[in-house]
């Protein structure tokens, strides 16, 4: 878990170098990867678990038609599952004027 955390922190720190200095695809960078999927072979099982974990929060998929400039929101079941979850709804309350103040 700590390795994952470090990985994520590292990703944030190095976002500019990933964008300007790596061969990662824009989709890979937007999805939070720090290495290309080709390099990921040995940790693919972990990556899959990661993916499942992130699916819940980020159901957006890359367009299957690949004709779009923006990711198509076509997974409406995932959208519904996420945004009927009381914990998810609660997690964004502080972003509204009606919500609790964060400090």
């Amino acid at each position: 878990a700590s390795a994952q955390l470090a990985d994520r922190l590292g990703r944030r720190r190095d976002l500019a170098s990933l964008i300007y200095g790596s061969d990662l695809s824009p989709e890979e960078i937007a999805a939070g990867k720090t290495r290309s999927s080709a390099d990921d072979a040995e940790s693919s099982r972990m990556a899959r678990e990661d993916d499942e974990f992130f699916q819940v929060k980020t159901p957006a998929r890359v367009s299957t038609q690949a004709d779009e400039d923006f990711d198509v929101e076509d997974d409406f079941d995932a959208l519904e599952a996420t945004w009927t979850d009381p914990a998810m709804l609660e997690s964004i309350r502080s972003m509204f004027i009606t919500g609790p103040s964060d400090n």
Binding site: R12, Y20, P26, V62, D69
Partner: peptide, 30 residues
């Protein structure tokens, strides 16, 4: 950032020579 934005930042560097500085602002903000 969306994937579209990532590609656009690369294209802007190539065409306009502009490179953005990115700082982690916490809470998944940049």
């Amino acid at each position: 950032l969306t994937s579209n934005t990532v590609q656009f930042m690369r294209d802007m560097q190539a065409s306009l020579g502009v490179r953005f500085r990115i700082t982690d602002a916490g809470s998944n903000l940049l």
